[in-house]
Design a protein around this nucleic acid. Structure first.
Length: 883
DNA sequence: GGAGAGCCTG
DNA sequence: CAGGCTCTCC
C-alpha cells in the first residue's frame, strides 16, 4: 500500500515537473530546478495548505495529535491516501450505478466539511456510505451482515482487524441515553452496532413507506461528516487515545443508542475509533442521535427517490420526443410515398413495417405477461427490496409498462392513422403543388412538435407536482399518459409513445427498431411552445433521422436517383420558422434552391447515408443520452457514455469518415466545453446558402455538442440555410483569408463565415485554424531566416520575398495548395517584413529569450489588411477561384 | 473565470 | 490539423 502511494507521489511530482517545464518555457529554465526542489521539500516537510486537500487534513491531524513528528505525518498521509484510493475502488455490491452516483454526490457534498473535525481523520469519503449501502442491500433478516463492516472495508493496514460477532439482541432501542463518562470499548462498539442496525431499519422503513420529503441541504453536511469516519486504524494506540480524548473533549455528546445489549468478542479498535469519530460530530446536532439517524436515512432515501423520479421523467420525455420525431418523420416519408407515381417501393416498406409491428407485438405480449406476473408480486416485495434492487425493479417495471402502453397505443394509432391518411391526401390535393405541400408539412410538423412539447411539459409538471410518485405509482402514471395528450385534438395517439417493443432504456434499442405509428395532425397555429419543441426535437433530429422504413427518406431517394416532388422541402419549414416564421420564406424555401457551391462535391456522408443507413442510423449517441444522468440507466458501462470517443467512428461507415473528420474535433471540443454556448446565433436567411448534405453532416456536430439552444437552429433534414459546422471549403477559405489577415478577430470571422452558425465551438475552431496557420507561417519564417543567416546573409535588407522565393512557394503551397488563388502583393510584403524581423531577432541573439517571438508577433499583427468583401460571400470560393 | 495566444505533441 | 496545455489579459 505505501508503494502505491509512493507511485502516486511520484506521479504528482511528475505532473508538477511537467507544469514546471511549461513554466520554464516562458519563465526561464533557471527557475525550474529551484521550484521543483521547493515543491519537494514542501511535500516532504511542510504539509502546508498549498498542497492538496488531504494534505491539509493531515496537517490538521498533526496539530491535533501533536508529537508524532513529521515522519508519522508522512506515513499517515500515505496511509490515508491509500485508504482513499482503496475506497474509491471498492465495488458497490448490489448497488446500482445510480446509487453509486448518489453516494458519490453525497460524499462530495460532504467533503467540504471534512476539515471541520480537528482530530486526525484519515478520511475515506465513501466508505461509510458504502458500508451503509451494503447494509441496505442485505436483507432485513440478516442485519449482522452489515454490522461487521470490517471485512468489507478493511483498513489499509488492518492489523487492528479483530473478529466481530453479531449482536445477540434484536431489540432496537431508540432512546438516547447519555454516556458521557463511559469510555468502555465494549459499550461503544455495541452502540455502534445498534446505530448501524437502526439505520438499516430506517432504510428499510423508508423504502416501504416511501415518504417523499424534499431533502434539505443540511443533510449534506451531516453526510459530509462521513468522510472522516472511516479512518485508517494505523497507529492504533495513538488513535484510540486520540479518539477517546476527543470524545471526552466533546463530552456533551449523547450516546448513540442505549447500550443494553451485550456483545462478546473483541472489538475492532479501528471501529472504536470510528465510533469516536461519529460521536465527535454529535454535539453539533440539536436532536438525539437516533432522530438524526432516522431523518438522515430517510432524507437520503428520499433524495435518491427524487433523483430516480427525475431520471424516469427525463427518460419518459426522451422516449416521447423520440417517438414524436419518428412519427413526424415517418409521416413525411409516407406522404412522399403516397405522392409518388410508382408506389412499388414503399409497399415493401409497408410490409416491413408490418413485420416489425407483429414482431414487436409478440414481444410486447410476452412482456405484458411477465409484467402481469410481476406486478402482483411487486407490491409485496417492495418493502423487502434493498435500494439497488428496488431501483432496478422500479425501472424494470417502468420499462415493461411502457412497452405495454405502446403496444396498446399502436393499435389505436393504426386505426386513426388510416383516417388521417385519407385527410392528408385530401388536404394535399387542395394545397396543390410542392410549395403547398411544404407548407402543409410545416404545419403538420409544427403541430406534432407542439403536441410533443405539451405532453412533455405535462409529464414534467405531473411528475413534480405529485411527489408521492413511487416507482410503481409512477408507471401507473405513465400508463395514463396516452389519455392525457393535452394539445392534440384529433389524435390521442400522437403524443403517447407508440414505440415498438423496444428496450426503452438503452440507446441502441431505443432507436434501433421502433416501428412507427404514422401520424399527422391537422392544421394548427404556432404556440409559444414551438421554440422549445423545436429545440428539443432538433436534438433528436440530427441523429435520429431514420425511420425503419425509409431511414433517410428524401436523401436516399435522391441518391438512388428517384426524385421526389417534395425533395428538399421536408424540413425547410422548420428552418424557416426558426428564422422568424416568415411566410414568404416558408414559401420560397419549398422551392429547390440552386446550389450555391458548385464546388461542393457530393458529400461522402450523403453517400454513406444511402449506402449504409443502418450503420449511420445512430452514429453517435443522442445528445440527451449523453447527459450524465442517462448513463447510469444505460448500464452499459462506458459504451453508452459521453462523450463518444473517436472510436465512435467505427460505427459510421467508412465513406463518411472524411466528412466527419472535422466534426471530430468539434465534438471533443464541445464535450470539453461542457455544452455551454455563447449565444452567437447569427440567424441568416434562406437566401444565403444552402448546403444540404453538408448541413446535415455538420449538424451531427451539434447533436454531439449537446447544445440545446444551438440545436434549435438545426434543420435535421438538410436544406438548412446555416451550416452547423465548418467544411473543407471553409478551411480553404480561411487559408485564403490568411493571406490578408493573420489575426482575425472573432467578429471578423463571424462576418466572413456568415454561412456558419457560430457558437463557441465554431469560433474556437476558426481561431484554432488561424492559430495553426500562424504557427506554420512563423515556423517558415524562422526557418528561412536562420537559413539566410547560415547562408551568410548579414543585412536584413538583403532578404526579399518574391513570388519566386522558396519561402513564398512554401507558404503558397500551404495556404493555396491548388494555386488557384492569386496571392495579394501585400502578403508578400508582410512575409518579407516577418522574415526580416526574424532575421534581425536571431542575429541580435534574441532567440535566447523564450518569448523572443512575441515582439515579432506584435509587429506582424499590425500588418493585417482588410479582407476583400468577396470573402464575406458564402460563395466566395466559387467567385474567387473562377477569377 | 473565460477567451485567446502560443507551444508541444501526435 | 487538432488536442492539450500553459500563460496572459480582461
Amino acid at each position: 500500500m505505501p508503494d502505491h502511494d509512493s507511485t502516486t507521489l511520484l506521479t504528482r511530482q511528475t505532473k508538477r515537473r511537467r507544469v514546471d517545464i511549461g513554466v520554464k518555457r516562458t519563465v526561464g529554465s533557471a527557475i525550474f530546478p529551484r521550484t521543483r526542489e521547493t515543491l519537494l521539500n514542501a511535500m516532504n516537510q511542510s504539509h502546508g495548505p498549498d498542497q492538496d486537500g488531504d494534505c491539509s487534513l493531515v496537517s490538521h491531524s498533526h496539530g491535533a495529535t501533536n508529537g508524532d513528528g513529521e515522519k508519522t505525518n508522512v506515513l499517515r498521509k500515505l496511509l490515508k491516501r491509500a485508504n482513499s484510493y482503496e475506497d474509491a475502488m471498492i465495488p458497490f455490491p448490489g448497488a446500482t450505478i445510480i446509487s453509486q452516483l448518489l453516494k458519490n454526490n453525497i460524499g462530495k457534498n460532504g467533503g467540504s466539511d471534512s476539515g471541520f473535525q480537528g482530530s486526525g481523520a484519515l478520511s475515506s469519503g465513501g466508505s461509510e456510505i458504502q458500508a451503509e449501502d451494503a447494509c441496505s442491500n442485505s436483507s432485513q433478516d440478516s442485519p449482522s451482515d452489515c454490522l461487521s463492516p470490517g471485512p468489507q472495508l478493511p483498513p489499509p493496514s488492518s492489523s487492528s482487524n479483530f473478529g466481530r460477532q453479531p449482536p445477540p439482541s434484536n431489540h432496537i432501542s431508540h432512546t438516547s441515553s447519555q454516556s458521557l463518562s463511559s469510555f468502555d470499548l465494549d459499550r461503544l462498539s455495541d452502540e455502534h452496532l445498534r446505530a448501524k442496525r437502526a439505520r438499516v431499519e430506517n432504510i428499510i422503513r423508508g423504502m416501504s413507506h416511501s415518504p417523499l420529503v424534499r431533502p434539505n441541504c443540511s443533510d449534506h453536511n451531516q453526510e459530509g461528516n462521513h468522510e472522516n469516519e472511516n479512518s485508517s486504524s494505523n497507529s492504533n494506540s495513538h488513535r484510540i487515545e486520540d479518539g477517546t480524548h476527543n470524545s471526552s473533549r466533546h463530552g456533551e455528546c449523547p450516546s448513540l443508542l442505549s447500550s443494553s445489549g451485550s456483545r462478546g468478542g473483541v472489538i475492532g479498535i479501528g471501529e472504536v475509533y470510528r465510533e469516536n469519530k461519529r460521536k465527535q460530530r454529535l454535539p453539533q446536532q440539536q436532536h438525539s442521535f437516533t432522530q438524526l439517524v432516522c431523518s438522515r436515512q430517510e432524507q437520503r432515501q428520499e433524495e435518491r427517490r427524487q433523483l430516480k423520479l427525475q431520471l424516469e421523467d427525463m427518460q419518459k420525455q426522451l422516449r416521447q420526443l423520440q417517438e414524436k420525431f419518428y412519427q413526424i418523420y415517418d409521416s413525411e416519408t409516407e406522404e412522399e410515398e403516397e405522392n409518388m407515381v410508382n408506389g412499388e417501393a414503399n409497399r415493401g416498406g409497408d410490409r416491413e413495417e408490418d413485420g416489425n409491428l407483429s414482431e414487436d407485438s409478440i414481444r410486447s405480449d410476452c412482456l405484458e405477461e411477465r409484467h402481469r406476473d410481476r406486478r402482483g408480486q411487486t407490491q409485496d416485495d417492495l418493502s423487502e427490496l434493498d435500494p439497488g434492487l428496488f431501483l432496478d425493479r422500479a425501472r424494470a417495471l417502468l420499462r415493461e409498462q411502457a412497452l405495454i402502453d405502446r403496444e396498446m397505443e399502436e393499435e389505436a394509432d393504426s386505426r386513426e392513422e388510416e383516417e388521417r391518411n385519407g385527410e392528408r391526401v385530401k388536404r394535399r390535393a387542395v394545397a396543390g403543388g410542392g410549395g403547398g405541400g411544404g407548407r402543409q408539412l410545416a404545419e403538420t410538423l409544427k403541430q406534432e412538435l407542439n403536441c410533443a412539447v405539451s405532453q412533455v411539459v405535462d409529464t414534467v409538471v405531473k411528475g413534480f407536482s405529485s411527489p408521492k410518485q413511487t416507482p410503481s405509482h409512477h408507471h401507473g402514471c405513465h400508463s395514463s399518459t396516452p389519455a392525457a395528450p393535452s394539445s392534440s385534438s384529433n389524435s390521442s395517439s400522437s403524443c403517447p409513445p407508440p414505440f415498438g417493443a423496444l428496450h426503452p432504456l438503452t440507446p441502441e434499442s431505443r432507436f434501433g427498431g421502433g416501428n412507427l405509428a404514422l401520424n399527422l395532425n391537422g392544421e394548427g397555429s404556432p404556440t409559444p411552445n414551438y421554440h422549445s419543441s423545436n429545440q428539443r426535437l432538433h436534438c433528436f433530429g440530427d441523429v435520429i433521422i431514420p425511420s425503419p422504413l425509409d431511414p433517410f427518406g428524401g436523401l436516399s431517394s435522391r441518391l438512388s436517383g428517384v426524385p421526389t416532388p417534395n425533395d428538399q422541402t421536408e424540413a425547410l419549414p422548420l428552418v424557416v420558422r426558426k428564422n422568424g416564421g416568415s411566410a414568404v420564406e416558408t414559401t420560397n424555401s419549398s422551392l429547390p434552391p440552386p446550389p450555391h457551391h458548385s464546388s461542393f462535391q457530393p458529400s461522402p456522408l450523403t453517400a454513406s447515408l444511402g449506402f449504409s443507413p443502418p450503420s449511420f442510423r445512430h452514429p453517435f449517441p443522442l445528445p440527451l443520452m449523453g447527459y450524465p444522468f442517462q448513463n447510469p440507466l444505460g448500464s452499459h458501462g462506458g459504451g453508452g457514455g459521453y462523450p463518444p470517443g473517436p472510436k465512435d467512428h467505427s460505427r459510421v461507415s467508412p465513406d463518411s469518415m472524411d466528412i466527419t473528420r472535422e466534426t471530430v474535433s468539434l465534438r471533443t471540443k464541445m464535450a470539453s466545453l461542457g455544452g455551454g454556448h455563447m449565444g452567437h446565433h447569427h440567424h441568416r436567411h434562406s437566401t444565403e446558402s444552402q448546403h444540404g448534405p453538408e448541413g446535415l453532416s455538420l449538424s451531427l456536430i451539434k447533436s454531439e455538442c449537446g447544445d440545446l439552444q444551438d440545436m434549435a437552429d438545426i434543420s435535421p433534414y438538410s436544406g438548412s440555410t446555416i451550416q452547423e459546422g465548418l467544411s473543407p471549403n471553409h478551411l480553404k477559405k480561411a487559408k485564403l483569408m490568411f493571406f490578408y489577415t493573420r489575426y482575425p478577430s472573432s467578429n471578423m470571422l463571424k462576418m466572413f463565415f456568415s454561412d456558419v452558425k457560430f457558437n463557441r465551438c465554431i469560433t474556437s475552431q476558426l481561431i484554432k485554424w488561424f492559430s495553426n496557420f500562424r504557427e506554420f507561417y512563423y515556423i517558415q519564417m524562422e526557418k528561412f531566416a536562420r537559413q539566410a543567416i547560415n547562408e551568410g546573409v548579414t543585412a536584413a535588407e538583403d532578404l526579399t520575398v518574391s513570388r519566386e522565393a522558396e519561402l513564398y512557394r512554401a507558404l503558397n503551397m500551404h495556404y493555396n495548395k491548388a494555386n488557384d488563388f492569386e496571392v495579394p502583393d501585400r502578403f508578400l510584403e508582410v512575409a518579407q517584413v516577418t522574415l526580416r524581423e526574424f532575421f534581425n531577432a536571431i542575429v541580435a541573439g534574441k532567440d535566447a529569450d523564450p518569448s523572443w517571438k512575441k515582439a515579432i508577433y506584435k509587429v506582424i499583427c499590425k500588418l493585417d489588411s482588410d479582407v476583400p468583401e468577396v470573402f464575406k460571400s458564402p460563395n466566395c470560393l466559387q467567385e474567387l477561384l473562377h477569377d
